[in-house]
Nucleic acid binder design. Sequence first.
DNA 1: GATGAATGAGTATTCATTCAT
DNA 2: CATGAATGAATACTCATTCAT
Lengths: 210, 210, 210, 210
Amino acid sequence: MSPRTADQFEEIREEKKTLIMDVALEHFANEGYHATTISHIARRAGISKGLMYNYFESKEALLEAILQRSVIGIYRYFDLNKDGYLSEEEFEFFIRKISVVLHEKRSFWRLFFQLVMQKEVREKFSVLSSEPLKETEFFRGDEKFLSTISGMITDYFIRKKQIKGPSYDPLLDMNMFLITLKGYAITRIYIDDNDQDDDKTINHIIEIFK
Amino acid sequence: MSPRTADQFEEIREEKKTLIMDVALEHFANEGYHATTISHIARRAGISKGLMYNYFESKEALLEAILQRSVIGIYRYFDLNKDGYLSEEEFEFFIRKISVVLHEKRSFWRLFFQLVMQKEVREKFSVLSSEPLKETEFFRGDEKFLSTISGMITDYFIRKKQIKGPSYDPLLDMNMFLITLKGYAITRIYIDDNDQDDDKTINHIIEIFK
Amino acid sequence: MSPRTADQFEEIREEKKTLIMDVALEHFANEGYHATTISHIARRAGISKGLMYNYFESKEALLEAILQRSVIGIYRYFDLNKDGYLSEEEFEFFIRKISVVLHEKRSFWRLFFQLVMQKEVREKFSVLSSEPLKETEFFRGDEKFLSTISGMITDYFIRKKQIKGPSYDPLLDMNMFLITLKGYAITRIYIDDNDQDDDKTINHIIEIFK
Amino acid sequence: MSPRTADQFEEIREEKKTLIMDVALEHFANEGYHATTISHIARRAGISKGLMYNYFESKEALLEAILQRSVIGIYRYFDLNKDGYLSEEEFEFFIRKISVVLHEKRSFWRLFFQLVMQKEVREKFSVLSSEPLKETEFFRGDEKFLSTISGMITDYFIRKKQIKGPSYDPLLDMNMFLITLKGYAITRIYIDDNDQDDDKTINHIIEIFK
DNA sequence: GATGAATGAGTATTCATTCAT
DNA sequence: CATGAATGAATACTCATTCAT
């Protein structure tokens, strides 16, 4: 019965937070942020409402924590801090990684699209920042994430022009790529079991835009 | 002095209903259905809350009336009752019409995507019906709308195979088309002013899939 | 096309008022005063809400008008103004008249019992007035009605003592009579078709208390 | 300091529920169900409106809980599960018990008569069930209660015939008894202090129908 | 007289958040 | 750390009443 160490406490704390965030994400993603109640989350997570507020200051803080965690996770998955350069060989891996991350984090992406469709949130995202990423500020972080990706992609298509020649329209191609990516995303994130046809589709997308 | 005629009342009713629906659609689309309050709609429409309920039985009934109106409008715009056949020449017009309708009814489409992302609603749409359209039943109507379009498109890509030959994969092509359409849609409906580059994009999409 | 005379107008007015009161009484009696809405009454009476207020100042005024009309009707039916004396022969007719009036005006009595069970209303009735009846003041009128009947009955049972002798307890007998009357009333007013067994019951009640 | 135990919570819950039900019953009985607002109940109970909904799902659920509690209480008081047989000696106790229960639970009975006079509720009660009593289903329970009593009484009067001889009309006598009971009930439940004359009346009723 | 659109105060209900234990 | 009782501001909805036509 030796008292738990501070580390053990911290570990338990983190586990509980993770549990709450997992449950909350699931519900936010499927029923919507507004339609999901704190009571419901607490009940599903097997804890009391009071405890929820021990871990998260408010419902919105919980949302931001979830978003931040996901963004950081994805950020790390793509290892985007290295150089911001997307080579031709990397492009294929990049697309495949997107396919994986869309499916594995589909709850997050469902929530993400939902939020991005809200006017207020949309406006926040339109101002892309070039400030260094602070992990505690989600939206900044997310903007950074998006602007980094955005820069890499722009870069990639501009370089493509040097290969494809003067008749090639890099802006048009990039727009088509972004449209395809978005369409692929919202298709993919609403399939619960891994789709059989997906491989074909992904290969085809790579084929077109590489 | 003299009392209003039934026609005058009818006119007032229709005008007010339209006004309320217009205001409500705008807010549902931009702030989200749950985040929009009846008070807010009433205030923006310059009427009392009570009057809202003179015209619509509930918030949900208002939503359904809006959806129904939009679906019927789009249905008519596409004139889909004719034969359900999409010829090669028609395909181009079809795409251009989609572009127009996405932009002109962008509030509806914003709302539509928002709703379709809700689990419960998504499930409703998964059962596609082949019953004849009754205008008073929104979801049926919408399913009919979608299933009609869906059938036409499937048809179109199967016929394409006869032209393109055995190496052509109609299912893959159709999937790519649907992905492109969705990506194009969510891109287009969040641009408020008519986009300059849009023409190029549309032409390119037609080029690829015709 | 000669213009209607003032009398004709008055007649139409009275007919409409009667119609409204009939419909309202039916609903007040069966669904309850609070649960019945003005809209509902108007719709059932085939008139507009506005017109209702042309005839009756308020929902409560409508209620009072209904009660007053019924009370006056019953008052007249019993011809109670004559002398307030209830002879032995009259007693039998009195009971039979009660039976008839309970059934024919059962909607009124349903409403009456309902109201009398409301504390506030009950208190009003507890102060019995000996003022002369003014037809425009319902509650006064009703009190007068009740106090007149009450006096007559008290009188009747006191006189009975002179016949029955010293072992007879007039107060007890009167209480039993009032209890029986009330019990008979609430039984009778909730039977819609004229009850077969009722004659036997009435004869028996007369037998006991005459 | 230390957190409350489950038992403590349970105790608080039961106390508060009882408090709310007591206050609500008082108001429902005296002002009527529809005329009593949740705000009013909460204010009188010294709690917030929100708390009411922590304990009862809705105003109607509160009503049903009150009715159920009362019915079960009365059911137990009469110990009706034993055999459903009412002997001559028991009859006297039965009447006296009714007198007591009418007075002690007069708020419930005021509410009961009020509700029974509503058309919709009346119809529910007309279907008497012979299913075993489930305490959680109020109306069933109440029907069972009434049908049990009803059966016992019918039985009692049929047996009386064997004593009184062929000139005795059991149905008429029972009807008179039920009328007297109802009349006694609505008289008794609207007297707040225990009536002096009541003993005489009760004795007389026993005398007549035993 | 007659209509029903329009109002607004009121009612039941919900839910994020606080806090005593 | 943990609980759920308690709060109150906000929300959807109702309905008696008014009023322009």
